[in-house]
Write a protein that binds this DNA or RNA. Structure first.
Lengths: 200, 200
DNA sequence: TCCGAAGTAGACAGATCGGTCTACCTTAAA
DNA sequence: TTTAAGGTAGACCGATCTGTCTACTTCGGA
């Protein structure tokens, strides 16, 4: 996984003085800024003016890349999907790439200072009436389940079990989001323990 | 549970011609309208003007009861909490008041035409930076867990298990919200099955 | 009988929203 | 050398946002 993606996903804001002097192209800056603000403060409560100001571009440049805020929202979800899945797969690898790896991965996520839950679940709550949004959530969760399938032994119904495990993760994520990350991980372990006693 | 609460929680819109002629007081009308719109379309995307118009009150009346939109949002969450918990307890009773009752209760919820996920999880995604909101979510989920505790046998760690079951419910709720209610219930059953094999 | 609470109708204000527009500059490839 | 893509700065638009205001009405209880 390239450094930039890992940075966006997990790092705390770095010292500007130490930052790479060559700033990325406008589109990338807009997307990164939108990602930070949309994820942290919500989509509807973040105006395009603020993104434009913080990305250091002009309105013309912004609207050249994203004809409407709606386009930016969808691009943000696609961007988030890419960096989250990359991070998730990498983190699972680092912890052994099996069912038991999920716990430390969640730990790493929940206790990251920028954690604010699952961007897709949040977007669903905020604009769950927009079909393009719902579709993106579906895609994201489908791919997440596929990654989880890869952690399961092949002598069981992996698709079913992966779906259940993914639901346990989502339950844990929202619980961590309202301020109970420890309890969330504990509850997740209980649910997984149950899963494991169903797995032959 | 009084009829009005059950109506708000579960019924499809009734025929206006058959409705009770004596309309409820202004505050109640505002609260019901806000509940419908906030839940269905999101909090930030619903302007007070629309609530005022659909509740059939004037701005003065509105702002006399709720000095700011923020006050209305918090009142909405308290209102939602009351009607949801009432419905949840009642529904569990109707299906036997044990762990196995949760499945048909979720079924009833997910397939209701007005279902749009958990209002608290949605609010958290939308305005999870506001401490009063986070606090309400915490309160709501704590009470939900307490109700679930009542379904568990007393020869186990009910608090822990109830927390895990509640997380499985939340995972199922968000999955149902993005359009997979059947898979959500199936996954929930798998998770609960695991729980039950941990329960002595 | 008087008074205050709760209601009506609707104009208005200031801020912010998403989005458009003109005018000019830089750079790299055809 | 020309040209097109991508960039800058900032004025401007109409719509919508939350919230305030004046002026009048209705009604139940002290």
């Amino acid at each position: 996984m390239e450094r930039s993606v890992y940075h966006v996903m997990m790092d705390t804001p770095s010292n500007p003085a130490l930052m790479d002097q060559t700033k990325p192209p406008a589109r990338e800056r807009i997307l990164r800024t939108a990602h930070t603000l949309f994820y942290r403060e919500g989509i509807r409560s973040t105006g395009v003016d603020r993104i434009i100001a913080e990305a250091g571009v002009t309105k013309v440049t912004f609207y050249r890349h994203f004809p409407s805020k709606n386009d930016l929202i969808l691009a943000f979800l696609d961007y988030r999907h890419r960096i989250w899945i990359s991070w998730f797969q990498d983190a699972l690898q680092r912890y052994g790439n099996n069912l038991l790896a999920i716990e430390p991965v969640l730990q790493e996520w929940f206790f990251n200072p920028v954690f604010r839950g699952c961007a897709f679940i949040n977007a669903l709550g905020e604009m769950g009436t927009m079909p393009e949004i719902v579709h993106r959530v579906n895609q994201h969760k489908t791919e997440m389940r596929k990654v989880i399938e890869g952690l399961l032994p092949d002598n069981c119904d992996r698709e079913d079990l992966a779906g259940a495990v993914a639901m346990a993760i989502d339950g844990a994520v929202v619980r961590a989001e309202w301020g109970e990350p420890i309890e969330a991980i504990h509850g997740f372990n209980l649910l997984i323990e149950g899963m494991r006693c169903l797995t032959p």
